[in-house]
Structure formats: C-alpha cells, structure tokens
Amino acid sequence: MAMTMHQRARLSRGIQYAVLILVAVALIAVADWPLLIEKVFNPQVAAQQFPGIIAVALKNTLIYTLLGFVVGLTGGVVLALMKLSSVAPYRWLATLYIEFFRGVPALLVFLAFGYGIPLAFGFRFNHYVTVMIALGLVAAAYIAESLRAGLQAVPKGQYEAARSLGMSHARAMVTIVIPQALRIVLPPLTNEVILLTKDSSLVYLLGMGVGQYELTKYGREAISEAGAGLTPLVVAGVAYLIITVPLGILTRRFESKTDRMKKS
C-alpha cells in the first residue's frame, strides 16, 4: 500500500505521541503519590520556607550573580580587546585564559579559591570577594568570547568612518564600535547571566553564615533541619526559575527584535 510522505509523517508523529502518553501514564500509575506529596511537594513545609527563601536566599543569589557579572563583564571586555589586539602576546594571554577557564569546571575554581588560597597564602578573602572572584573569573572567559564575536560582527566600515572623522582608536572603539557590539551580544550576555545565576549555587561549597545562604544552600540546610523531604529544594528550584525564565523570554524578545531590524 502506498502512503504519501505526508501520511507517513503523520503516522510517525502519532506513534511518538502514543509512546509519550504511555510513559507518562505508567509513571503516574506507579508513583506513590501520597508519599511524593508528603516528601517532595509538601505545602506546609513549602510555606515554612517563607519569608527566608526570598528575603535571604533569593536576595543573596541575586547579589552573588551581580557581583560575578560585574567582574565577568569587566574582565570579559579586557580579554576580548586583548584577543583582538594586534599585539601577539596579548592575544596569547587572552587565549590561554579563556581556554583554561572554559575548560575547567566552575566547581574546581570555587574549591581552589575557597580552600586553595588560604592554604597557599595563609589568608582568606572576605566571603563576598571570594564569590565575586570565583564566579567572575569563569564568567569572564565566556563573556570574552561573546564580546569578541560581537566586536567582529560590527562592520569594519564603522571603525573606518569613526577614524576618518579624526577619532583615536580608543575613542572609535568606545563611542562607535563597542556600543554596537553590546547590542549584538545582549542575547548571549543574558544567557551568561542565566548561567551565572545557576553557577552561584556553587557558593554552597564555601563555609558561610546563615545570612549569606543563597538558594541552593538554603534549601539544603532546610532539608536536614526539618527532616521534611525534598520540598525546600523544590521551592528553591522554583525561585531559580523565577529569575531565569523571564531572562530567557527577554533574550528571545530581543533576538526577534534585532532580527526584524536586520530585515528592514
């Protein structure tokens, strides 16, 4: 029997949906719902997390992310300019840095800063400084790559026009090229903020006071404290989504806007 391509595609899609529904039904049937609700989605335990999870944990997550982003953006700008420099050693240094920090897990960088520095130099940075540097060092590597791509995406004619008007190299970069590059890199930069928000959970590795807990640490501590299953972590997860989902939507909005600009 002959089937058209269209019919075959519909049949294949139908089978996929059927399998999906079967799996979902099986999971729902097998799961122990009362226990699951008791241990994972417990409304009373969830309610107990407030207001601390917002007033302390969410606030700290935002602070850590912001600190990391400030260092990451500053470092990223410097690294991107080094990578595009005509001075070869600058390029090598920037490449070395970027490859290293993109290549090792952020977890490892946190361990090195939290425990390595005190061991090696016998002193400890302030908690916030440690977080800022550890998060920022890694973020800088990723941001540098996004910025470099953005800077290279600005047409050469823009730089030439700026120089032709008598602007110095630095002035042309600051006034003409970098503002345009920033628009191009806004979507990848927002992405970077999302990654940073999640990476800030690594702070839980460091010793800290209760007032410095961020979402993951807060959730973990709440688990052991209450003996109340995983509910606090679910609440923490939702709190992350409250930050990251709007950022994702913002990125898509911006991407479609710049796409429209390109088409016009």
Binding site: G157, E160, A161, S164, L165
Partner: peptide, 20 residues
C-alpha cells in the same frame, strides 16, 4: 594622523552611518 583626519572629510560607498 588624527589631527590630519579631522580636516579631511570622507564619504564612503556604503555610507557607514552609525546605526546606533
């Protein structure tokens, strides 16, 4: 060079206006 360029206007084939 920058001092010279501020006295020399240049008009490009592709305009090169600053889009931002």
């Amino acid at each position: 060079v920058d001092r010279m360029r501020r006295h020399v206007g240049m008009v490009f084939q592709q305009f090169n206006l600053f889009p931002h």
